[in-house]
Simulated assay, not measured.
Amino acid sequence: MTVNLTRIYTRLGDGGETHLGDMSRVSKTHERIEAYGTVDELNAQLGVTLAQGGLAPRTAQWLARVQNDLFDVGADISVPEGGSRERLRVVPEQTKWLEEACDEANAALPALKSFVLPGGTVQAAQLHVCRTVCRRAERRTIACGEAVNAECVRYLNRLSDLLFILSREANVGAAEPLWEPGRFR
């Protein structure tokens, strides 16, 4: 499957509307546009994370895979169910890979004794930013209702878990900032 983009501007969105993947026109504030726009924002934040460097090679490889999968998620969200053409949809195997990655990365981490505060190393802090954007993308996708592939929601839910685990891993060897309830009361 190839994508051919010859001209970037079209002027079709100048009136506040855009096309979904099935070519139907909707407002740029439509719940699907909000959902896949937030997925796109997450992908950009992952790009920043990768560009900063300092990640373990395995983590960088995983995040590059996730970036590609996020285009699948966005494509899936952008096309309503139905129609005569076969469409790209997120499949359970993509979510299963995230679960396996979570299990692998989490196995080497110490047990949690408190909630983790975003921070520590630059890489960990940026992964927390990605995690929070991922949670927003999940909420925006859920807001699309039953008309969206439920596997997109599952994928984003597992991805936020993986990003949390990877942020903890990025703090190994540094002091992991933990919440101390009521410390400054």
Rank of each mutant, 00 (worst) to 15 (best):
E31D: 09
V129P: 15
A44S: 14
D40K: 07
V90L: 03
E34M: 10
G53W: 07
L163P: 10
P177W: 12
E180V: 13
F71W: 10
V26A: 01
G74S: 06
P57F: 11
P110E: 06
C152R: 05
D40R: 08
C130Y: 08
L50R: 14
Y9T: 00
Q45S: 14
G145H: 04
R139S: 12
S114N: 15
C130I: 08
C144D: 08
S78G: 01
N157L: 11
D69R: 09
G173L: 03
R65C: 09
D161L: 09
T132S: 15
V153K: 01
L109W: 05
V73L: 15
V153I: 14
V116G: 02
D22H: 01
I33K: 05
A150N: 01
L12Q: 02
E31K: 06
T38E: 13
A105W: 05
I33C: 08
G83D: 00
G82K: 02
L98D: 06
R58P: 11
T29G: 10
G120D: 01
Q52S: 12
L117H: 13
E169R: 13
N149F: 01
L127K: 14
T2I: 12
F164T: 14
L156N: 10
G16I: 09
A124T: 08
T2V: 15
C144V: 12
L20Q: 00
Q45W: 12
Y155V: 01
G119I: 05
A143L: 11
L12H: 01
L159I: 12
D69A: 10
S114Y: 11
N68P: 04
E146S: 13
V133I: 13
L46F: 11
K113V: 14
L109H: 05
F115Y: 15
N157A: 10
R140P: 06
Y155L: 03
Q67E: 02
G47H: 04
D76A: 00
A105M: 09
V73E: 10
N68E: 12
D22P: 00
A170H: 04
E86G: 05
G53S: 08
V148I: 03
L63G: 13
V116M: 05
A107G: 04
G145V: 04
G16W: 06
M1A: 08
R65G: 12
T49L: 14
D103P: 02
E86N: 02
G37L: 00
E81L: 05
E146W: 09
V153L: 04
E93V: 01
G37T: 03
A170M: 06
L166E: 09
R131I: 13
V129H: 14
P80C: 02
A124V: 06
E31W: 01
N157Q: 10
V48N: 13
K28S: 04
G74V: 10
I165W: 07
